[in-house]
Computed example of a mutant assay.
Amino acid sequence: MTLFMPTCAEVVDLLTDYEEGALGPFHWLGLKLHLSLCPPCRAFLDSFHRTAPILRALWGNPAGPAAERALDGALAALREGRLPQGPQHHPEEEAWRALEPGGDPLTALLLRVHLGHCGTCRGIHGPGQALASGDHPLVALRPLLPPEDQWEWTRHGLGGAQVARLMKDPATGATLSLARMPGGRTMPVHGHRGPELSLVLSGALQDGPAHLRPGDWIAHGPDHQHGPTADQGSDCWTLIRLEGGVQFRGWRSLLGVVG
């Protein structure tokens, strides 16, 4: 992306937000400028507009009785508060090696927090290293972290979110950070320079198709791009192990590599 205008590939990424009226003024102006100068992208946008009516025409048959009953049952469960309890997103099998002697200490810390929330994983891997989950997300973690006056907070340009780098592993270069997102706010879209492990401490967030609650774990590989959104109603706190930092898109790219 140039200072004022996105590339053709970036235009494709922006079209959904454009159609939903979710683009910021900088991206909206850049997209409009690009479309005024690029016939292929205008043709692509035209096909984008025609896709929804075509799909509606193809989806002509109403849902069958079985589908209607399944939907009614799911809605009734939501109304009655019959929601699954405990973490739904668990660490990958290879991640558990971090709890073995000589394992990665930052990954091990996330695993210990997960064990504090997850009875299923305690039954498999044992309760010995679990960190108790308390009312405040940092109660059990504080004795294992540096003093708060050593935390390196980043606030500007993060859409209302705050990120504090807590420690760095000299052996791997990986960092451990604490992120706080106000309820209803979205972390700006960013890409990863290396693998990222995230674990929700409190609150909840939507990260792509995954809805994450306290104790839930999610892993992202290098070059993955996302912009998680915290659920309405309360702040979402997450603990993040990161290698290589992140690079924001748009004007936030001026921040350079963060993390």
Rank of each mutant, 00 (worst) to 15 (best):
G184A: 00
L131R: 00
E152H: 03
H136L: 10
P127A: 13
G126V: 11
L158Q: 12
D135F: 07
L176C: 07
G157W: 01
L178V: 13
T154H: 15
S177L: 11
A130D: 01
H136S: 15
E152V: 12
E152Y: 03
L145D: 01
P137D: 12
M181T: 10
T175K: 02
Q150S: 13
G126H: 02
A132Y: 00
T154F: 10
L166P: 07
S177E: 11
P127R: 12
W151F: 08
E152F: 08
R155V: 13
P182Q: 06
G157P: 08
P146Y: 00
R165E: 15
G134N: 12
Q129W: 00
G159F: 09
P170H: 06
D169P: 01
L131W: 03
W153P: 06
L176D: 04
Q162M: 12
H136C: 09
S177Y: 00
G126C: 04
A179N: 00
D135L: 11
G159V: 08
A161K: 09
L158P: 10
S133E: 05
L158S: 14
D135P: 11
L178I: 14
W153G: 03
G157Q: 07
R180V: 15
D169Q: 05
L145W: 10
G126N: 07
G173S: 01
P146R: 08
G134T: 09
A179E: 12
P137S: 14
G160H: 09
P147I: 01
R142A: 07
T172K: 00
R142W: 02
P137M: 04
K168M: 10
L158W: 08
S177I: 00
D149K: 01
Q150C: 12
A171M: 05
L178E: 01
M167E: 15
L178Y: 05
A140G: 13
L158G: 14
L176M: 05
D135C: 09
G160A: 06
L131D: 05
T175I: 02
R155P: 02
G160M: 06
G184V: 06
Q129C: 02
P137H: 15
R180M: 14
G183L: 05
L131I: 07
P147W: 05
A171G: 09
P127T: 02
P127N: 12
M167G: 12
V163H: 07
L166Q: 07
R155W: 11
E152A: 08
A130H: 03
G159S: 04
A174I: 02
G126A: 12
A140N: 11
P146G: 04
L138M: 15
G128I: 02
D135E: 15
W153F: 13
Q150W: 02
P137R: 01
S177A: 15
A171T: 14
S133G: 10
G184E: 13
G160P: 08
R180W: 00
H156I: 09
G183I: 08
T172C: 05
Q162C: 04
D169G: 07
W151D: 12
V163I: 13
L176T: 03
T154E: 14
A179F: 04
E152G: 04
A171I: 00
P143W: 08
A161T: 12
R142Y: 01
A164Y: 04
E148S: 14
D135W: 05
V139G: 13
G183C: 07
G183H: 02
L145F: 15
D169M: 03
G159Q: 06
G159K: 05
